[in-house]
Design a protein around this nucleic acid. Structure first.
Lengths: 254, 254
DNA sequence: GTTACACCTTTACGCAGCGTCAATGTCAAC
DNA sequence: GTTGACATTGACGCTGCGTAAAGGTGTAAC
């Protein structure tokens, strides 16, 4: 029995375009081509198409299907297992999305009044996500993956009291720094107090403190406009001043 | 504060290409364009971008996001709800896929020995699926959706005994028909017996038997090569002969 | 003043898996 | 000889950008 494209297409329940595409990508070539250029398929191609469609229904990519059906020694089970993993990952993503959509709907409707604790948890998570989005890749490159993960983990484990303490520390730093800047002396008492407060603040996020890392961070503050924008907001030059203060504090500069 | 593409891109953690694309599709246009054609964004655009990215993370399509962020009166909750439905549907599909992949892996590994009953159930299902794929659309058009659904439902409800009986009936038909064909007389005893057996066979699949439907099916058998291929395999002409026999049996032809 | 270099622009192909014209050739039947 | 069904290749479109390529700007350093 021989089939033209349309006959085979109807037999298998696919479109002729699909068959031509499969020919094009070398997934299913016709048994022969007649003198007018018509594609002629025979039984072997019917079987192969059935196999192809079987894997397609499982969501396997045509590329992968090609590997599977062309090499008879191909490890189908392994391929399927890997495919399964991908599907599971997709589902996890989907579940996350759905949960987030649900939460958003509930929030927009005002149905859920978040408790302080929940709000706090959500806030911490968002902070991490936000930080990730903004600086994640860069910081990971500079400080290594582990440092960042640990920092995030530490933040997630902070109690609200610790968090509040860290937040008020940040505010204290800002105030002290503003005053210190007016003295113009990064080695002065005020500037050094700001640097010390910053060390305390840091230890809320960092697992272990080293003067080198602290100095490195200070340098980054001054180099990166996204940080300087924050410190220089009221008094341009503050970021650089703060860097100098920390460099002196950590002993990296006289 | 004003931003060039790259600054805004870094701030929001997206690529410049993304921003230019959003400009292109009218999702996020810059506040203004300077004399050299540079895109200049300001605070309002930062906010809007944050909103866009928020919905993007929920998996909403850019088209939909556009609707949401452009018209302030847009019913966000409804949009989210619809989006949620789509996500759920996707997950259902995924779950099905995963289950099928699991089954396939187990089968290929030979881990599960299907019981006769399971094998039978699976076989019935496959038969229906196969029939669906091959003839579904066509038959639905000819006989109406209901007939087909009922037929499928009946098949699924058949016991194994009934199923075996139907299968052996089919074999009996084949044998009888082969002999009848040799007599060359579609009105003869053998041919009419074959037609009667076919009626019995049909009643396993059809909810209600009518001579008209039977005759119609016979006509289809002879017209459709996918059926004739089956009947004419050993003796070409058998399909037409069988049609004549049934037409006589049903009184549609003298 | 120019040279370097980072940053900007538009244009356009590529990705998966086909759907959907469009323009044109072939085959069997009336 | 003409219709009508079926075949062919070619090419664009869909989503959401990534990734060149080719060329203009901005600004700091020499």
């Amino acid at each position: 029995m021989e089939y033209t494209v349309q006959r085979l297409a109807r037999l298998a329940g696919v479109s002729t375009r699909t068959l031509r595409y499969y020919d094009e990508i070398g997934l299913l070539k016709p048994a022969r081509v007649n003198s007018s250029g018509y594609r002629i398929y025979s039984e072997a191609e019917v079987d192969r198409l059935q196999q192809i469609l079987f894997y397609r229904e499982l969501g396997v990519s045509l590329d992968r299907i090609k590997e599977i059906v062309t090499s008879p020694s191909f490890d189908e089970v392994r391929a399927l297992r890997e495919h399964r993993e991908k599907l599971l990952e997709k589902r996890r993503q989907l579940d996350l999305l759905i949960a987030n959509v649900d939460k958003t709907i509930a929030l927009k409707e005002g149905r859920i009044e978040m408790s302080d604790k929940e709000r706090f948890e959500g806030f911490k998570k968002r902070m991490i996500e936000d930080n990730e989005r903004r600086y994640g890749k860069e910081i990971r490159e500079k400080y290594g993956k582990e440092t960042v993960e640990k920092s995030n983990a530490k933040l997630m484990n902070m109690t609200q009291e610790e968090y509040d303490r860290a937040t008020s520390l940040a505010e204290e730093i800002r105030v002290t720094l503003t005053e210190a800047f007016k003295t113009g002396d990064p080695a002065g008492e005020l500037a050094q107090r700001a640097a010390d407060l910053h060390r305390q603040w840091l230890s809320f996020y960092w697992d272990s403190y080293t003067r080198e890392a602290h100095a490195g961070l200070a340098q980054m503050y001054a180099d990166d406009e996204r940080f300087t924008a924050y410190y220089d907001k009221d008094q341009p030059g503050t970021a650089a001043f703060f860097r100098d203060a920390i460099l002196i504090y950590t002993g990296m500069k006289k």
